[in-house]
Amino acid sequence: MMEVVNFVINSLIFPGLLFASLVGLLYVGIDRKVTGHMQHRIGPPIWQEYLDMGKLLSKEDITPGPAQSLVFNTVPLIALGAIVAVMLFLPITSAQPALTSVADLIVIIYMLNIPAICIMLGGYSSGSPFGASGAGRYVVQLLSYEFVFILAIIAVVARVGSLSLGTVVGYQVQQGWLVLDWRLLPAAIAALIAAQGKLLRVPFDIPEAESEIVHGALTEYSGPKLAIWRLAYDIETIVVAGLLAALFFGGPTAYVIGGTQIPGVVDFLVKTLAIVLFTTTLRNIMARLRIDQALKFYWSFAALLAIISLVLVLAVP
């Protein structure tokens, strides 16, 4: 009985849906505010995402004629569910996640791809040329960043010798952050580049390039369904940042400063915010690449970094 209650609390309140949405929306709000300042604008208030969400949820739910299908209507929910589930596998308060398994990194990699696949399905089933075009581009982009991302994770796994994220964080408590390990530094850079593509941020916002294909795969979505997409995207931001923090930046650590106990969740929030702000900076100083240029970049430069790291880890004990 207790386990069931625990599971419900975990998935719906902390660290599940409620916590993830509050933090995710807030972080994207901060991202928008910082972007505004970088562009010499005032920018929206940092709670703007909450307001947008409320506005979208209160709108009429419209499904365009050619898009009337089960797939079109259900994929936003599947994407949201998958991304919230990943939240449960992330170490947030301590090295121990809410759900554990022997090889949770593999589960995380799989679950993180479900929203991407959902976006493609939504785009293809929307019956709009922009949706189809956006989905097609998303396939190519997925093929480019995913390889780099997985290689970087394999390098970490090879170093630590475990497929469990809890063990990776535990290892860093004793040995120091993995990003400070010179063998893994290239992998960390490659993973950050891959995250930029995963989060669809400039220069890799190609699948939703608004001046070319309107809003890509999500063009035909509106109202509550779009709100769910936005929520899933905002949670994905914090999930990817949290995964990077756990893999390379020590994960959540509890500190004692001046006699007061600072819980690990504060550390988690600070680290994820730092990573989100790093991606924000990147996206404000570049132009969008073309899809073939992005593919080439990932498979040459970024993949090379990750491979170098893997070879170093295997070769230099």
Binding site: T35, M38, Q39, H40, V202, A209, S211, N284, R288
Partner: peptide, 9 residues
């Protein structure tokens, strides 16, 4: 070309 910072400046 998706370079919004330059646009604003």
């Amino acid at each position: 070309i998706g370079f919004n910072t330059l646009f604003m400046l």
